[in-house]
Design a binder for these strands. Sequence first.
DNA 1: TTTACAACATGATAATTATCATAAAATATT
DNA 2: AATATTTTATGATAATTATCATGTTGTAAA
Lengths: 227, 227
Amino acid sequence: MNKCDCALCEFRTIVFEDLSSNEIYSVCGYKTEKNYKKGDVIIREGSQINDFLYLKSGLVKLYKLSKDGKDQIISIAKPLDFVSLVSIFSDKTYNFSISAIEDSTVCSVDLKFIKELISKNGNFALNIMQKMSRNFDNIINNTFNLQKKHLRGRIAHILLFFANEIYKNNEFELPLSRKEIAQLIDMTTENVIRILSEFRQDKLIEIHGKNTIIINLNKLNSIAEHG
Amino acid sequence: MNKCDCALCEFRTIVFEDLSSNEIYSVCGYKTEKNYKKGDVIIREGSQINDFLYLKSGLVKLYKLSKDGKDQIISIAKPLDFVSLVSIFSDKTYNFSISAIEDSTVCSVDLKFIKELISKNGNFALNIMQKMSRNFDNIINNTFNLQKKHLRGRIAHILLFFANEIYKNNEFELPLSRKEIAQLIDMTTENVIRILSEFRQDKLIEIHGKNTIIINLNKLNSIAEHG
DNA sequence: TTTACAACATGATAATTATCATAAAATATT
DNA sequence: AATATTTTATGATAATTATCATGTTGTAAA
């Protein structure tokens, strides 16, 4: 049983809190850690599901090919999020892809081993269900909320998402291209570009090279909420 | 340990297949069965989650209040479906409502008891996760697919859904009002009515009183797929 | 450095959808 | 049965969004 730092990993408090010390050590034997550069594909849609994945650091997008051949982004996962959707427990192959949108480190634990743990340790099972359940809820709520906002509201929402939830800062480098933002909030690339320009002209944001700065948080909030 | 028919219930093969005979019998003690008339509210958003619910017969809608005060329907559940979303494992209170859209029978099992079973019987846990996982996938896929169809495609889709998945028949009584269909596929009531009229004029469907009959399945399929 | 290619930008127009108005038909209420 | 209310129905118009066209800028490859 090789030594590893799983017992100390922050993620332990998220999913593995119900495991005994012995169990935690056994996780190490089935765990690998991998680094990805921005742009790297981590999982390709259609490939076999062998691992339980979670994001240690960085930022990734989960996306799938729609019938008209375009990618649509299902969600953005941040550190300590599951990178696998719950569907890893029902399917044999991934029905979505995962790519790094920032340099990322992904931990993967053999899925068979996780399933064994689940069947042996009921509290662990409940815990996983709870976490995945919350993940599901967030995706559903987000999708439904976005769906009925106008384009400006959606763009405001996504800017606030990056500022508040991801970077905790009003100045950040957008990790997604305009095209990707369009895929995430279901609109055309042209309109993403256009509305960001409008926001800049209206002095809600500033764009300096790759950096985006939110300069009128209140107005942006109100656009995200009401229009 | 009172006798009940859980061991014979069709639902056993769906979720409870991994339970021992003893466990199945113990389910009986924590189970109640309730009948609802079309229109009855089964669960009201915000109320406490105490039970694990599944639909024995009938048809129900899961819906929630959106910020603008309108209901939006998340999904339609048919017999043997979970009526609870996965969120029952992460939340204390329901963040959605459930109503019968046809006369229905709902079985409810004490959630604490289910959680105990999960923690004692790992295979049961895995099985539940698998089922919920599939449920999640269906909702997500459906939502994303509908989202990028035009109004006519969405109406065609919903007609085919009732014909193929629910009633297994090209003639059926629509269980939802035009207004509810609008809430399910995110459009205005007027447009639902308008497009159903168009479909009737184009001889794709017939509407006789409460009954809807699909008379051009191929065309409807093609509209659902491509436009 | 030149060349290619993708990302960003903006205007004009067409397509799609929502809103508003008005009314008939069906259903529920008194 | 008479009255009110909801559901279905349809047209006209306004608002929203996509598409197409055309350029510029930035970035990667030869």
